[in-house]
Amino acid sequence: MPLLVPPAPAPALRSVLTALGSPTAVREDRTPALRVLPGPFTAEAPLPLHVLAGDGRPGGPPLTRLAGWRFLIRCGGRSVAVAEAVVTADGWAFSRFSEGPYVKSTEQALAQAESLPTAYQPRLLSVPELYMLTLWLHGDTAADPAAGSPAPGDPLVPLAPAPPGIAAYRPYRAADLLPVIGVRTAPRQLPGPLLGSPA
């Protein structure tokens, strides 16, 4: 069943298209592929990018926040980079272009998700503390893509490269993967003073 990709906010898409069409609109250098390839470039597969901001209350949903929208930049029938737009006090603004393994792994995970028997709203969920990015397949396809948290049954598909011990491209139930992430991102407690040692 096809993924129901939500439309990106029009100003977010406009900011990315403006950056693609006008190198002077970009403060930092374009990525190597965007400098070398002749184009034309298109911005496709808009995905809301959420950041895991905490575990929430015990037994409650995890806390997430919308960080922006990410677009796959395609040229010649393949994805060559990603572009991000972020919300600012004045509205949406282009943030950056980037390359790297998450370009191809996002494309691969989306293709894999298209073959699932259930319809999902695709999103991205970032876990900065683990340098981890997952394709979050939200079960409520009519939900506001900028809001919400993973439901227990929502599949989370880690993109490659995934942290050690977590398989890339394997769909995990959010209820199974998020506790593992929580353990890995929890602050480490230093042991208390040993008996007989100075405090």
Rank of each mutant, 00 (worst) to 15 (best):
M1A: 14
M1I: 05
P2V: 02
L3H: 04
L4D: 10
P7A: 13
A8W: 00
A10R: 09
A12L: 07
R14K: 13
S15E: 11
V16Q: 02
V16D: 03
L17R: 12
A19M: 03
L20Y: 06
G21H: 06
S22L: 04
A25T: 03
A25L: 09
A25M: 08
D29Q: 12
T31S: 13
T31A: 02
T31W: 06
P40W: 05
F41A: 07
A43L: 08
E44V: 15
L47E: 00
P48F: 08
L49T: 01
H50Q: 11
G54V: 00
G54K: 02
G56C: 05
G56H: 00
P61R: 11
L66K: 01
G68L: 05
C75H: 15
V80R: 02
A83L: 07
A85R: 01
V86E: 11
D90E: 15
F97E: 02
F97K: 02
S98V: 06
E99L: 09
P101E: 15
P101D: 14
T106C: 13
T106P: 10
E114R: 14
E114S: 13
E114T: 13
P117W: 12
T118V: 15
Y120Q: 06
Y120M: 10
Q121R: 10
Q121D: 06
R123I: 02
V127P: 00
P128R: 10
L130S: 07
M132L: 14
L133M: 12
T134Q: 07
L137N: 00
H138Y: 07
G139I: 04
D144V: 05
P145E: 09
G148P: 01
P150C: 08
G153L: 14
L156Q: 01
A160C: 03
P161H: 04
A162H: 08
P164S: 10
I166R: 05
A168I: 05
P171M: 05
Y172P: 02
A175G: 05
L177M: 06
L177I: 09
P179F: 06
V183I: 13
T185P: 03
P187V: 04
Q189T: 14
L190E: 14
L190N: 07
P191G: 05
L194Q: 12
L195F: 10
S197F: 10
